[in-house]
Design a protein around this nucleic acid. Structure first.
Ligand code: ATP
Length: 736
DNA sequence: CGCGGCATGTTTTTT
DNA sequence: ACATGCCGCG
């Protein structure tokens, strides 16, 4: 059943080498070929956008299999998304002419997940461990903050978890952190952290960060296991290396510790995940850490026109922290980049839709067009405008399918079936749909479980429930029955069958059907889609169609992973999601100061440079045509907000753009008169004269609220009465 | 215990 | 503007 084709190395070596070899020489340039042929030892490929890094990696894997006869099971390939992994696998199999089932090709998280299922017991994980997403984590942390008797406002679960996560990304553990700090709040934080890890352990669960950390610990603390895995992977290849974090770096190091054949490719100018702990130094310092590194630079760009390339390069050259790179193309200079200035976001969306309509009518296929933006919230208006123009489209990201409440509720049952210690999943499913188990009963069960050191579900099964009110006892009994029946089925059935049974037996579907509202109907539809997805998973994963494998897979899905556009559909996504993709035409929307670059990044030079890299990524997705749009006004939190054109547009050499190329508006907007005081709410009352960068002077008519969130009603002689949010308005007081 | 109403944060990006 | 999450009442 598994792949024997690839192992037919005699055949390959004797007959097909000349043909295959020409494939490598014909479809790669010299520098790429050099990277492919450098199979032994550490190799660093540092090169700009569209220079064929991913192609190099893909062909290199094929080369290892075809030319060196390496078994796929000895190859580890790491990509940034599951989708990229799927595409690379497909391409490599195409090149090799056969299935490569044994090859490990996936994201860091998927790979660690697999490793931990096999050897996780070495770091205290059960084989059925759960993976907690952000919501699960927050639930856990909220309960802990509550149990500690702390103020949930002061110790906001999200924030606490954010701090913990950034520590984890930097490989700091609670024990190391504690001695470093005297600050009482931080000491409390460490206690929360420790309690959080204990809680995870009790639930036999890991969060996303832990998946990587546990895998590293497994390899670092256990010589035998490190040997086992490091020997297994004779060749390791990592794409998008500029966006790896410290933990991933250690992981790579440990895995490469035996054979040392490690190829990493990336572009420091495309490092856009530092907020998630990515360390661009990983790629820049690679040669120092891996002795004898062969460094390869790819300088020919195969994707974009000369003008696009020049514009992108000119903008990113404004970053101080970077490796200068040469990038050239044999192609045409092509069109100029077009800049459009619009009065508001509605006009922006309308214009994009109209231009796309024209393109499509002119014969361009929708799938060759992308609309990119900085924030997901931006997608809505654009989508509406496309719908109005009857342009078929797909939105990538935003609320993911598997993040919908009804999907998570249903999967919570299955998580308890797989891992009965998963208290968060238990808490989510036990009273959904309502079966009479309220807060009182839950708290009581929690107390009991805590006292006996058991998980909630185990406590429920093993404990004496006689003290509970009849109503909740019935509910509990019903729940146990559902779970146990599912468990019995799960022994032999696959993911599709079990999802089906869950929908039927949990009463969830019935609850929605009884509801009958529009909202409920759409939820029912989603659940039926969940069922399809479970069935499809079982069909496409014959080696392990279990519900456990299914849950693991969906826990690690990103929005982009389910992206499979058809010929007609235009793609809408954030620039982050667009990393690694390419389109004939790219529309970049929302190019305003405060939105892109985003306000929060404008204070720190480091973060501003990341915004600029993001812009570089956006523009370099395009092959032929780039449109850059900005709106003078835009609603934010339901409030109208006025902005000026993004500095990134101004950083493009004027000769490369057409359209709204006039110089910055009146300088007075930027050089505030020294006499003018920055407006704060205390100083503003009805009657106050204020100055606005766009509307000029106006008289305050009313003030609602207080502080930076105050909403002002201001009458401007030329523009009429406007409501402004003080936080964003950038007003100065002219006269009190 | 469950519902409905209000308050709150959200719009930075995601494995 | 909108969704989620919390609280208090029936
Ligand atoms: N040697 C080559 N000859 C022709 N086309 C090539 C060659 N190498 C790569 N390409 C094409 O150039 C485009 C970009 O390649 P690829 O995605 O591998 O670049 P990349 O460096 O990974 O880009 P990015 O960093 O922007 O994600 C693709 O369309 C690819 O097919």
């Amino acid at each position: 059943m598994p792949n024997t084709q690839y192992l037919n190395t005699h055949n390959l070596q004797n007959m097909t080498i000349p043909i295959k070899k020409s494939k490598f020489t014909q479809e790669l340039n010299e520098a790429q070929l050099e990277g492919v042929l450098a199979t032994e030892g550490p190799v660093l490929v540092l090169a700009g956008a569209g220079s064929g890094k991913t192609r190099l990696l893909t062909y290199k894997i094929a080369y290892l299999v075809l030319e060196l006869g390496i078994e796929p099971r000895s190859i580890l390939g790491v990509t940034f998304t599951n989708k990229a992994a799927g595409e690379m696998r497909e391409r490599v199999e195409q090149l090799c002419g056969g299935s490569l089932g044994g090859m490990w090709l996936g994201t860091f998280h998927a790979m660690c997940g697999k490793l931990l299922r096999i050897d996780g017991s070495a770091v205290g994980l059960g084989e059925n461990y759960s993976i907690y997403d952000e919501l699960d984590q927050r639930r856990l942390m909220k309960d802990i903050v509550h149990d500690f008797g702390l103020d949930p406002k002061e110790f906001d679960a999200r924030r606490v978890l954010g701090t913990i996560s950034s520590c984890k990304n930097r490989m700091i553990c609670p024990e190391e952190y504690l001695p470093l700090t005297e600050d009482p709040k931080e000491r409390t934080l460490v206690k929360l952290w420790t309690a959080y890890q204990d809680a995870l352990k009790a639930c036999d669960a890991v969060d996303f960060d832990d998946m990587l950390i546990f895998a590293v610990r497994l390899l670092q603390e256990n010589d035998e296991l490190r040997q086992k895995w490091a020997r297994k992977f004779k060749y390791i290849l990592v794409d998008e290396f500029q966006d790896t974090n410290l933990v991933q770096y250690e992981l790579v190091k440990a895995l490469a510790s035996f054979h040392g054949n490690i190829t990493v490719v990336g572009d420091d100018d495309q490092s856009i995940y530092s907020w998630r702990g990515a360390e661009v130094r990983n790629i820049l310092d690679f040669p120092e850490d891996f002795e004898g590194t062969t460094t390869i630079r790819l300088e020919q760009n195969y994707r974009s026109t000369g003008n696009i390339l020049e514009a992108a390069s000119a903008v990113v050259a404004n970053n101080a922290e970077r490796h200068a790179k040469t990038l050239w193309t044999k192609g045409q200079k092509g069109e100029l980049l077009r800049v459009f200035k619009l009065p508001d976001e509605y006009a922006e969306a309308k214009l994009v839709a109209r231009m796309i309509r024209e393109q499509i009518d002119g014969g361009v296929s929708g799938s060759d067009i992308a609309i990119l933006y900085r924030v997901n919230a931006h997608s809505r208006l654009l989508e509406e405008a496309l719908t109005r123009q009857k342009i078929s489209h797909v939105i990538v990201g935003g609320i993911r399918f598997f993040d919908r409440a009804e999907i998570k509720d249903t999967l919570a049952y299955l998580r308890v079936v797989v891992n009965p210690d998963d208290d968060v999943a238990f808490g989510r499913s036990v009273n959904m749909p309502r079966r009479g188990v309220g807060l009182q009963s839950m708290n009581r069960l929690r107390e009991m479980a805590k006292a006996e050191g058991k998980s909630l579900y185990r406590m429920l099964i093993e404990g004496d429930m006689s003290g509970f009110p009849p109503r909740s006892r019935e509910g509990f009994a019903e729940y146990i029955e559902i779970i146990e029946e599912l468990r019995a089925t799960a022994r032999s059935a696959d993911a599709g069958e079990i999802v089906g049974q869950t929908l039927r037996d949990s009463g969830y579907l019935k609850m929605l059907e009884d509801d009958g509202s529009f909202e409920a109907k759409s939820r029912v539809e989603n659940l039926s889609e969940l069922l399809n997805s479970g069935i499809e998973f079982a069909n496409t994963h014959p080696e392990d169609p279990s519900i456990r494998a299914y849950i693991t897979e969906v826990s690690l899905l990103a929005g982009i992973d389910s992206y499979s556009p058809d010929e007609e559909s235009v793609s809408l996504m954030t620039i982050h999601s667009a990393k690694g993709l390419e389109f004939g035409t790219v529309y970049v929307c929302g190019l305003e100061e405060g939105l892109f670059p985003i306000a929060r990044a404008m204070e720190s030079p480091g973060e501003l440079e990341e915004e600029r890299r993001l812009f570089y990524v956006a523009v370099t997705r395009a092959k032929e045509r780039v449109a850059l749009l900005w709106a003078m006004s835009r609603h934010r939190f339901g409030m109208e907000q006025y902005s000026s054109r993004s500095r990134f547009i101004d950083e493009i050499p004027k000769v490369l753009i057409e359209g709204d190329t006039d110089a910055k508006p009146e300088p007075s907007l930027f050089e505030r008169k020294p006499s003018a005081k920055k407006a704060v709410s205390g100083a503003i009352n009805p009657g106050t004269i204020v100055e606005h960068p766009f509307f000029g002077r106006g008289e305050v008519r009313g003030v609602q609220g207080w502080g930076e969130n105050a909403i002002l009603t201001v009458a401007f002689p030329k523009y009429g009465t406007k409501k402004l949010l003080l936080k964003y308005a950038d007003l100065s007081v002219v006269r009190g």
